[in-house]
């Protein structure tokens, strides 16, 4: 974790027009306020702030920008910061002892859009992602969105899938045309 904290602290914030800046502002004030509210409830629920945890203040004319520090929270999966998608630069960390426990934590949620597994074990590589109820499980990678891969959520994360060729059927009707080529009358009259 020490290395993760160091990497998180090394994220350079500032004016997004500066090419060396890695993270700019949040997209809107309501998103900014929502993230700060999550940091507040996370701390109230007893999550430990490993780094960040506050708005990001800077000078140079961006004092009122919607900047949030990259944040790592340590806690347990019952906390709301673990259960909901914060949609901000906040990652929540918890611990597990067995693979079964890790799977139980991954599935103890109302949602199931994306999940990630990191392992060097060839069995876990297949068995763990199969056991996780999420529409996409990244294994030894994360946040890749190739255009042809089906994307969508389990549980309350949504209906259906997008972006795979087979999804085109969602937008199409199947029409059945029964055409007789016969020149003879059908014989009813």
């Amino acid at each position: 974790m020490e290395r993760v904290i160091q990497r998180t602290k090394a994220i350079k914030m500032g004016n997004p027009l500066d090419a060396t800046v890695m993270m700019g502002a949040q997209a809107s004030e309501d998103q900014y306020q929502k993230i700060l509210s999550y940091l507040d409830i996370g701390k109230q629920e007893g999550a430990e702030v490993l780094t960040g945890g506050e708005a990001f203040r800077q000078n140079s004319g961006l004092e009122n920008g919607y900047y949030v520090q990259p944040t790592l929270l340590k806690g347990n999966n019952k906390m709301r910061v673990f259960q909901e998608e914060i949609f901000g630069p906040v990652a929540c960390v918890t611990t597990f002892k067995t693979t079964e426990e890790a799977i139980a934590i991954a599935n103890d949620t109302l949602y199931g859009l994306g999940a990630g597994v990191w392992t060097r074990d060839a069995h876990e590589l297949y068995q763990v992602p199969r056991a996780i109820n999420a529409g996409r499980v990244w294994v030894n990678c994360y946040h890749a969105y190739p255009a042809h891969a089906p994307f969508g959520g389990y549980k309350k994360s949504g209906f259906g899938r997008e972006t795979h060729k087979m999804m085109l059927n969602h937008y199409r009707q199947t029409k059945n045309m029964l055409i007789s080529y016969g020149k003879q009358k059908l014989g009813f009259f």
Binding site: S28, E29, D30, Q33, K34, S37, I41, Q44, E45, R80
Partner: peptide
Amino acid sequence: VIRGRGSSFSLEIPLGVRFHTRSRV
């Protein structure tokens, strides 16, 4: 209530403000 235009069908959106839920344990 906070300032800023949210993206949803909630009735206050056209007024340029957004209802916001704060939580206390």
